[in-house]
């Protein structure tokens, strides 16, 4: 019986991994057929372009995009913690945060980029950071508010019974209890941040992977557009699989 189940589990596991590989081949097939029309360079061409790129050309742009994403995300994370904490006690801030989330959530990255670049200028390094902050804020804020109210009332009562003050309750129970939910939200949020950052970079002239994509486009360099897009995909996938996913898994074990 268990033997049979184990066999079935293995077959399902192999099927699942095959599905994942097929997805990669599917995307590649679309690319190859699109390039057959002659409008788009094919994988081989783009790979050759990628290999011809110099490391000292790629690394600064990647770092710039990482910097924009992480800084923007940190801003929205900090704002969420402050608003989330105050929401806990004050209905006014709760209403404010909720409506702010709704407004920001219905505003596009495109609108933020245009407004901020128009306000701060194309050379300003700030728009990508602020766009990332604005776009990730609703998600992180909503997650933070629910994470901060996820603490077990039994644990709160227990620490209160041995003399915890409200600040002890916050730092020793409410905050630690929210770690798993915050970790999940941060993983999604940082992934979003990277993809949003390049949109905002495309509108300015301060560099980053998004800036390189649009520059290649303006130079009618189709291979460059695809090569830098692959850099972005590698960056998003690499960060998620190698850094964020393991961190999230660790955080989830925290409460057991």
């Amino acid at each position: 019986m268990t033997q049979g189940n184990k066999g079935a589990d293995r077959v399902q596991g192999i099927a699942f991994r095959t599905g994942r590989i097929l997805a990669g081949l599917f995307v590649l097939a679309i690319w190859i057929s699109a390039s057959a029309t002659g409008m788009l360079p094919g994988p081989v061409e783009v790979l050759a372009y990628l290999l011809s790129m110099r490391l000292e050309e790629v690394v600064p742009q990647v770092l710039k995009t990482l910097y924009n994403s992480i800084t923007g995300f940190s801003l929205s994370f900090l704002a969420s913690m402050v608003l989330g904490l105050l929401s806990h006690k004050l209905p006014l801030i709760r209403g404010f945060s909720e409506a702010l989330s709704e407004i920001f959530n219905s505003t596009s990255a495109l609108v933020w980029s245009l407004v901020l670049v128009a306000t701060l200028g194309v050379l300003s390094p700030l728009p990508p950071i602020l766009v990332v902050a604005a776009v990730t804020l609703p998600h992180i804020l909503t997650a933070t508010v629910s994470a901060l109210s996820s603490a077990d009332p039994g644990l709160l009562e227990a620490v209160r019974s041995v003399g915890a003050r409200p600040s002890d309750e916050f730092f020793e129970v409410i905050l630690p209890s929210s770690v798993p939910l915050l970790a999940s939200a941060s993983r999604v949020g940082l992934g979003t941040a990277l993809r949003i950052s390049v949109v905002a970079e495309a509108f300015g002239s301060s560099g980053g992977v998004g800036y390189m994509i649009i520059r290649s486009y303006n130079l009618a360099d189709a291979s460059g557009v695809l090569a830098w897009s692959l850099v972005l995909i590698a960056l998003v996938l690499g960060l998620d699989q190698l850094v964020l996913k393991p961190l999230e898994r660790r955080a989830k074990r925290w409460l057991e």
């Binding site: 644990l155 227990a158 003399g163 915890a164 129970v173």
Partner: peptide
Amino acid sequence: FQEDRLLPWKTLWENVALGLKYH
């Protein structure tokens, strides 16, 4: 309490010490 209600992210030592720390 019946359910112990120890903080899962702290060691037993730290849990025992909680009240003293708060004081």
